[in-house]
Amino acid sequence: MKTNLYNYILELGDNCLIAGQRLGELCGHGPSLETDIACTNISLDLFGQTRSYFQYAADVKGDNATEDSIAFLRYEQQYKNVLLVEQPNRDFAYTVARQYLFDVFHLLLLEKLQFSQDMTLSAIAKKSIKEVSYHVRFSGDWIKRLGDGTDESHEKMQAAINDLWTYTNELFEVTEAAKSLIDDGIAIDAATLKESYYEKVSALLEEATLTIPESKYFQKGGKSGVHTEHLGYLLADMQYMQRAYPNMTW
């Protein structure tokens, strides 16, 4: 098996899976019917992308792997998503901030990944770019509304950005798997996205009258499988059926 390629696909797919799962939790519990429908659309886009990645990962892995065995039957430390996307929906400001901080990175990544020498990854990226462009627009608009809305919303939005900022640096970490595939033009060197990421994010935060956090202390570990405490609970929910009723068809 091409272990590095497999791990790299998981790195891409797990971000979509966990971000989608977090948004899916909100369906029916958001601030308005309209936002429920919008967040569900984004969640559906992300699950669609997840399936494309995992179907490819299953092919690469062989051994009767399926999109579902990959999504549901790994242990905590085998998930390679960044810490950012597993952070909980503390309130709508957190949800929007998490989504925006991820969306900007996601789009920058896909814009490069569409030129990957790996035709499957390139095709997934091309399809996803359109979806993710909309995600950035949606979450960015909401950052502005909440940042530059009322005093209360400004405070909440600022708190969410401050708290989540610590997880942004991990987005640009280059894993061993990615490193081995960059020279062949298959994987993207995430470190090269960093500058334009912070430029874009800073510009929008400024427009939203928010303060760009100055913290230089960052958390990392997700990409190598060392997660925050939140992931375990998320997986307990997500894996429940497959764990409680193993080896069945649904």
């Binding site: 601030p31 936002t35 309130d91 809305g149 209360e152």
Partner: peptide, 8 residues
């Protein structure tokens, strides 16, 4: 919980 969001 959505009131402050809609107001904003």
């Amino acid at each position: 919980r959505g009131t402050w969001v809609r107001d904003a």
